[in-house]
Design a protein around this nucleic acid. Sequence first.
DNA 1: TGCAAATCTACACCGAGTGCAGAAATATTC
DNA 2: GAATATTTCTGCACTCGGTGTAGATTTGCA
Lengths: 207, 207
Amino acid sequence: MAGLRERKKARTHAAISDAAIALFLEHGFDQVSVAQVAEAAEVSKRTVFAYFPAKEDLVVHRFADHESEPARVVRSRPPGVRPLAALRDHFLAGLRDRDPVTGLNDLPQILALTRMIMETPALRTRAVTFQDGAEQALAAALHETADVPELTARLAAAHVVRTHWLLAMDNFDALLGGRAAADRHPAAVADAEHAFALLADGLGTYV
Amino acid sequence: MAGLRERKKARTHAAISDAAIALFLEHGFDQVSVAQVAEAAEVSKRTVFAYFPAKEDLVVHRFADHESEPARVVRSRPPGVRPLAALRDHFLAGLRDRDPVTGLNDLPQILALTRMIMETPALRTRAVTFQDGAEQALAAALHETADVPELTARLAAAHVVRTHWLLAMDNFDALLGGRAAADRHPAAVADAEHAFALLADGLGTYV
DNA sequence: TGCAAATCTACACCGAGTGCAGAAATATTC
DNA sequence: GAATATTTCTGCACTCGGTGTAGATTTGCA
């Protein structure tokens, strides 16, 4: 099980990331060098890169956990439930629970972190990269569990992932504008329902 | 009009990019340093960065031209034509004309270049970045010329741009597999029509 | 306690990208 | 057409992200 080595690694990993994020939030991602992060975490620069493949990952490594989330939702849906409905309900549940990935969490720390990610091109790019993985995984899940052609599955996955992202961005922007999450929640739900209805019924009635 | 200075700048710009692409195609993007590009173009390294903001732009700067293409298509559509139909027809015309952005051009140079972009993470990332711009511009065009809510326009734009990309990737993959563009063309048309029908009518009948 | 494996460190190195000061080329004025 | 002002190019030094390596340190296990 968890030997001393494993636990120490986990602690070091967290310590480095925490130190990094604290510094980044205070001075800005681009204004802090990896060497400074290493110093703050009382570790050598080489060790930082042993734990994180790139500077950006000091911040966005948590995103990796969510990479397979949509695919999981589709795969574990109850029988009889359509994939799109499962994905919509899961997003709505995320809104209700203030899941940060929905952009509707107004805890100051999370808001500040999200803001930094959005305003730092390198971080934003890295975050978008994770969407690719989510898209691939979701496409595979759709192709395998629903009986849908591969191209259709890939298109559907792309649309769903982008929809997620846009909805989250809108919610986040609202919170940045000073609104409380509870205040924004009803509109967030309405937007999400509209967006998923659009996915299901098409753009035909609009454009 | 075009003074000597302007013309010389344009020539230098092209010369640097050409030298760079030739080197990249021969040895690989990551295996060639900017210093080597500068030497090949008989220019200082500093000058390379005066013309191109980053190494990746030596390759993908052409993409910038296409950034506003979907928006232009929507804005210049004849009266009575729906935006989605205009976009679909424009893509189909691109297939017919073997426009490289449709992925259906099998000229060896273009195929090699496309392949390099797709297989080099840094280049691929940079190319995807341009899609963001296209999406923004398209969303604005839809919002302004069709009478459609802002969120709907943004969602529609996102879906259209991603659809474009996926269709182009599929065509490109087919050509990489050795097929001729003319050979792939019918399937490419069928795929495109299916994808745009999906956009118009929704995923509802599938997922 | 002692040994083998994993981990960390220091150091040297590479390439991308920038700031700067002066040289070279181009435009402008008389 | 010479003199001057302006733009552009160059060389150099520098920062920072990221990697290779050799040896010191720590940990797991017998």
